[in-house]
Design a protein around this nucleic acid. Structure first.
Length: 750
DNA sequence: TGCGACACAAAGAA
DNA sequence: CTTCTTTGTGTCGC
């Protein structure tokens, strides 16, 4: 199966450790046209196809052919019947000699245009071993098992004839393969709307070497038999609805996904080439090593320097890259597609790889195409994913939440075990503050603050309770309109409205008895190191970096990816301690203070040049605060459990950092005493207390908060911190277990 | 409801 | 081994 020419490697070379390397070495050894001779090498290709059809799998489309529809489809490809007749005969002799095509179909094809050959040849090789299970098995996102060969394309259908300048009829053959994103379940090819698929395509000309290709010019003809000069050939990926033939948009992402651009799969100007193996595509995904990329490019791109630019077959190609293989990675169906018909039956889609020609007027015309069998694209409905609740169960859970919330509102003492409930009143607290702050804020550069700090401050002021704090999800955190979207942050939806804020209480049953990753980002350049005791295996590691006290280091080098084993019923409420760490503050990066600090100014300048968001959270603020023992505005950390200074943007390691690590466990509660945290310098909130107290809702909210009888649980609502129940300590001194433990256990059972 | 946005976490790349 | 990247998919809220 493997396309592996017998070739002696340079004795200086080690044996290739992967098929990718083999292919790269092979590719380097090839010289010019030899690679494209339809001789030995490509015979192998045909051999593969012949083998592949020994066990054709059934396909619905086989039995549902509709000549009228097919005629219509062919019209769309600008079919000229006479051309097609001619070409089909050629193709049949050369390419499809071994394919099982009925004669009748062939005649129809000659008369009306190409009849898509619907006998999709399922390749009964190892690649398909995974496809025969009845239900989808969950595979890790980066697992190499995500790569699997998808449905086979049809043979090549000709739409227009191609002639060389010698008047010779050229027969193209398109190859395509789906390498990721589709599986064969219950006799159907299934893809997921949210997941990427990968497709590669290439074309060759029958009996036509690469040298011949480059030495010729080409033309096709229009309906009136006028010659149309072909400037260059290209490959294009498109999709249509199987049922009605409507065009379906595809989108391509970069590896950055949400943070990067989205675009339609581009048209790739291409010269003849052959398809790399599935294994090569698999191993070539996401490589970053420059040398590897360069070697790989030899597989995918035509090297112009190696051929004379004035060769007639090549000199009209555009200046940018010419592809030997069109590789489409990270393709998805547009999010707007309807995967159901109004009748609620499932729509199906076909993918097409078209060989197209760019004419002198810069228009593209389709010369030939290959097509997948009908594909089912599963939408985002949880029912399409294993281990998800049905909509009934979800509705029931929602109902449960509502009831829980009501019970909380009705009770002065908190006894519930709700999964999730909401404090509208705290919303109001935050909104009220927000409103005051927005009206009267003087510094437009202040763009973030944490409304939880309002709550904290309020509670601190009134002594009614102590909230260990929490943060709010980035989606809910305040970003004033006009805040720039930057490299560092995710794209933010533009809106003229103030985001609404909510504080949600949420217990995460997944936490109990599970492991958790600690994430520490950007740790560097701190002042002193103190080793803590070796971390026992069954203990909990908390990471603390109160502003004044970044001083401990772990011998275990905790870093992102460090996994903490918890006791079976342990809950991560102890991660409350993180909250103190999270109560770091930030400065407006335009503040005068910051500008006066040369070191920080340098970092800011770097960020500005790189169009990055001010790195206030990661480094500037903390550093500055430590240095000057002051700060202006509060914010929260998001997405990471711990941010520590990263003064310079180069790589760093935990060794460089001085991370405060506490080893504690559920009995070691004193470590979690909020009193151990000096928050006397937190925030400028106190300056705003007056405004805050003027807020309309204030007294109402105050009453509501007090009605909780100092047993207020306010968890963080950031997804990271959502896992941590935000507890009020000392509220239930006689309890063996913290409230959170009870919740956790009951939820887990639930 | 379906979708945009954000988040988590697990495996790959270096 | 550590650090950083990529990507399937869980989740919230509109």
């Amino acid at each position: 199966m493997k396309r592996e020419p017998q070739r002696v490697l340079d004795p200086g070379l080690r044996n290739p450790s992967s098929e990718l390397e083999t292919e790269l070495i092979t590719s380097l050894d090839f010289r010019g046209p030899e690679e494209f001779e339809l001789g030995k090498e490509n015979d192998n290709v045909y051999e593969i196809e012949n083998n592949a059809q020994n066990k054709p799998l059934p396909c619905r489309r086989d039995t549902r052919q509709d000549p009228k529809k097919i005629r219509k489809e062919s019209d769309k490809f600008n079919q000229t019947p006479a051309d097609n007749e001619l070409n089909r005969l050629n193709i049949r002799g050369k390419i499809d000699a071994t394919m099982s095509t009925s004669r009748q179909e062939s005649i129809e094809g000659q008369q009306y245009g190409p009849v898509p050959q619907r006998s999709y040849d399922e390749n009964p090789t190892q690649h398909f071993a995974d496809h025969h299970s009845k239900s989808k098995v969950k595979v890790a996102p980066r697992s190499s098992l995500q790569f699997k060969v998808g449905p086979q394309f049809t043979r090549t259908f000709l739409v227009r004839p191609i002639y060389s300048n010698g008047g010779r009829l050229i027969i193209p053959k398109i190859e395509g393969r789906i390498d990721r994103g589709f599986e064969f379940l219950n006799n159907e090819w299934i893809g997921y709307k949210r997941n990427y698929f990968t497709l590669v395509a290439a074309f060759q000309f029958e009996n036509y070497g690469f040298e011949e290709f480059t030495n010729a010019t080409y033309h096709t003809i229009d309906q009136e038999n006028n010659n149309l000069v072909i400037m260059y050939f290209a490959l294009r990926l498109t999709s249509k609805c199987t049922e009605d033939g409507t065009s379906i948009s595809l989108v391509q992402h970069t590896a950055k996904r949400d943070r990067g651009p989205q675009f339609e799969p581009p048209i790739h100007p291409a010269v003849p080439g052959s398809l790399p193996t599935h294994q090569v595509i698999k191993e070539a995904a996401n490589i970053r090593n420059v040398g590897k990329i360069q070697r790989l490019n030899k597989l995918f791109y035509h090297n112009r320097e190696e051929s004379l630019t004035m060769e007639p077959g090549l000199n009209k190609y555009p200046d940018n890259s010419i592809f030997k293989v069109a590789r489409y990675e990270r393709i998805q169906f547009a999010s707007s597609i309807n995967y159901r018909k109004p009748s609620s039956s499932t729509r199906r889609f076909n993918l097409y790889v078209e060989l197209i020609a760019c004419l002198e007027n810069n228009e593209f015309v389709t010369l030939a195409f290959i097509e997948t069998p009908p594909l089912i694209i599963r939408g985002r409905s949880p029912s399409n994913y294993p281990n998800t609740k049905t909509s009934n169960e979800q509705a029931s859970a929602r109902n449960e939440c509502k009831q829980a919330k009501k019970r909380i509102d009705d009770c002065s003492i908190y006894t519930n075990t709700a999964e999730s409930f909401q404090f509208d009143s705290i919303d109001s607290v935050a909104c009220a503050f927000m409103s005051c702050n927005t009206k009267e804020r003087e510094d437009d550069q202040i763009n973030t603050f944490n409304h939880m700090s309002c709550v904290n401050e309020y509670l601190n002021c009134t002594n009614s309770s102590r909230v260990v704090a929490g943060n709010i999800s980035s989606g809910d955190s305040m970003t004033y309109p006009g805040t720039k979207t930057t490299k560092r942050g995710r794209k933010r939806k533009e809106t003229s409205e103030q985001p609404k804020m909510k504080v949600k209480m949420k217990l995460n049953p997944k936490v109990a008895g599970k492991t958790k990753q600690i994430k520490i980002a950007h740790a560097k350049h701190m002042n002193a190191t103190v080793d803590c005791d070796e971390t026992p295996k069954d203990s909990i590691v908390n990471i603390e970096s109160p502003i004044q006290n970044l001083q401990l280091d772990s011998p275990n080098k905790v870093s992102q990816g460090t996994t903490i084993e918890s006791e079976p019923n342990y809950n991560f409420a102890n991660d409350n301690y993180f909250v103190y760490r999270n109560k770091l503050s930030m400065l407006s990066t335009d503040s005068e203070d910051l500008k006066k600090d040369p070191e920080l100014a340098a970092v800011l300048s770097y960020d500005a040049e790189e169009n990055m968001a001010p790195r206030s959270l990661e480094s500037l603020t903390l550093r500055h605060l430590i240095k000057n023992n002051q700060h202006e505005h509060q914010t929260v950390l998001k997405d990471k459990d711990c941010y520590l200074p990263d003064i310079f943007p180069n790589r760093h390691s935990a060794e460089d950092s001085r991370i405060s690590i506490f080893v504690t466990n559920s009995e070691n509660k004193e470590n979690l005493n909020p009193d151990s945290y000096d928050n006397s310098k937190e925030g400028l909130f106190m300056e705003h207390v007056d405004k805050f107290q003027k807020a309309e809702q204030f007294s109402e909210i105050q009453a509501k908060l007090e009605s909780f009888n100092n047993e207020l649980f306010i968890p963080s609502s950031s997804d990271t911190s959502r896992n941590y129940l935000i507890n009020v300590f000392n509220s239930s001194p006689n309890q063996d277990q913290s409230h959170s433990s009870i919740f956790e256990n009951e939820l887990y059972n639930f």
